[in-house]
């Protein structure tokens, strides 16, 4: 695929036809080019990515009575339940922070991750009609599904800041790390989403697996409990779960918990990177036949 065949090339004056020789050529071959060309093409289609994100956000809360409030209610109600059962009844330790804020600081990135994962996993199948009828870089679809969740994340994050103010907790200077942590959770959701969405095209088993997977993952991540409950020697292996780094990072940056997230973050980031690159390669191998199979 020639990357210069940018379908979004600048519009030209209507009547002047450029000579054939000067037009960019699209070459169609059984095998696709190298991954780089595809990423260049993805950049050329960035506007379409924007449109997909905008559509998903716009449509998500259409004909709902509560609208965007859902973005806040989901982590908020989970927090209430967790505080009752784990905080009050089970007296779960919470690294010296009030339990409600302890769990909410984790639930905000977690809710984003869980929703983005589910949305991207089903994204290709949900866009089957597009896949069969139009060409554009297929990556845009799971990518858009993940990005669309970021807006919900910010709404919930505002509530988190409000709660912190109510509890009289000032964020630490480590808050500058938050953007990185957000990117890490986007990358993690995308990495898993790429695998699952591509698998879902061929095996609809994925659709039934995702809710179950998310549930298990929730307990494999220090959301209801602190990771300090684990023995020191298991911590690095534990941190191969990308969300461990994200959640511990959030608490450390906002609530100044004692967990030093350095090694944890390193392990989580590396795991995410490996998963993401492998996911991209797998996705790329499968995308050639999406239209035939979906």
């Amino acid at each position: 695929m020639d990357a210069s065949a940018d379908p979004n090339a600048a519009p030209r004056a209507d009547d002047s036809l450029a000579p054939v020789e000067s037009l960019p050529t699209t070459v169609i071959l059984p095998n696709r080019g190298f991954l780089g060309a595809e990423l260049v093409e993805l950049w050329a289609y960035r506007e379409l990515l924007g449109f997909f994100v905008w559509r998903d956000i716009k449509v998500r809360y259409k004909q709902t009575a509560l609208g965007a409030l859902w973005a806040i209610l989901q982590p908020l109600l989970t927090m209430v339940v967790f505080s009752l059962f784990f905080g009050k009844l089970a007296s779960m330790p919470s690294d010296g922070v009030p339990y409600p804020i302890f769990s909410f600081a984790a639930l905000v990135p977690w809710t984003f991750f869980a929703n983005a994962l589910a949305a991207s996993s089903n994204s290709l199948v949900g866009s089957a009609n597009l896949l069969r009828k139009i060409y554009f870089p297929r990556l845009i679809i799971p990518l858009g599904a993940v990005f669309a969740g970021v807006v919900d994340f910010f709404l919930a994050f505002l509530v988190l800041l409000g709660m912190m103010a109510a509890y009289g907790i000032m964020p630490t200077a480590n808050i500058v790390w938050l953007p990185f942590l957000l990117i890490l959770s986007v990358a993690a959701a995308l990495a898993v989403g790429l695998w699952l969405s591509a698998l879902n095209v061929e095996y609809r088993d994925v659709r039934h697996t995702v809710p179950f997977l998310v549930q298990l993952w929730l307990f494999a991540t220090p959301i209801a409990y602190p990771s300090s409950l684990l023995a020191e020697k298991w911590r690095i292996i534990y941190a191969l779960n990308p969300m461990v780094g994200v959640v511990d990072g959030f608490r450390w940056a906002l609530l100044d918990t004692e967990t030093m997230p350095g090694p944890t973050l390193l392990a989580s980031s590396s795991a995410t990177l490996v998963l993401l690159v492998a996911g991209l390669l797998y996705f790329r191998r499968m995308e050639r036949t999406f239209a035939d199979v979906v």
Partner: peptide, 27 residues
């Protein structure tokens, strides 16, 4: 030709911007 699916053999070249309309109202 519109790159919706990849060929199993052979090649094709198209010059310039390609618009494809395989179904109205897609999307």
């Amino acid at each position: 030709l519109s790159r919706i699916t990849a060929p199993s053999e052979g090649r094709a070249e198209i010059r310039g911007r390609v618009g494809s309309l395989l179904e109205v109202g897609t999307g």
